[in-house]
Amino acid sequence: MGASFDIGYVFSFLPKLLDTLGVTLLIVAGSLLTGIVAGFLVALPRMYKIPVLRALSGVYLSFFRGTPILIQLFLFYYGLPELLKPLGFDLSRAPVMLFVILAYGLHTGAYAAEMIRASVEAVDRGQVEAAYAAGMTPYQALSRIVLPQALGIAVPVFSNLVIALLKDTSLAFTLGVMEMTGKAQTLGTLTQHFVETYIALALIYLVISFTLEKVLLAAERRLNRHEAREERVVRRFALGKRGSYRAALADIETGKGGGI
């Protein structure tokens, strides 16, 4: 099975894989945008308890969190053209990327919705009351007082969401999209140096995940700079490595426990 191990291949594969990094990042960015929009649309009826819409968003959440992303990819790819054909949309020639971004986007949306709802609800009720008591309108209270604080709370969850999405994009090749994992398979088959390709592939994912996590951690610190510094030190001391605890907490909050 395959040729004998040669570390040199790992280095020569890195630049070749990085050629397709753009495709991977395009899927991540496109899905993230779709996901955040979908997340708001789904979270709002749940937060404001709008009857029918709330039930619908409940079904959406349950389905997208209750089925594997791989199945969702196939469902969108094969199902969407069939469902939309009777409505007069012909998707038979639509680019695969459209289905990929839609599937990942709506999948991410289910987790984003919970992130948004949980973060807004985590802001103390007294903050809104104080804003109202000062004569602010509901919109002013939301935009100036609640959302800025919710943002700081949401960042660790968001960080987890983005990294989970990045890892999930490794499945897009199943629909024939030539992103990094797809490229790695081609390289492996071509050279028979599978282990080296996948080591190179794993290294790239690791570096991107790590960078994303650090950047978002810095953003979180900045957004939460108003919280007591002593508390942060105590927390870090008690919990050892803070980064992974954040991630664990993030899992708790969105329910994205495993992640592929």
Binding site: G2, I163, T181, I199, S209
Partner: peptide, 23 residues
């Protein structure tokens, strides 16, 4: 171990084991 696994897709773990372990 935790950092590596959480930072890479599950599919790469499977492929690495599948091709690397026999070696």
């Amino acid at each position: 171990y935790v950092t590596f696994i959480r930072g890479t897709p599950m599919l790469t773990h499977l492929l690495l084991i599948y091709f690397g372990l026999p070696m």
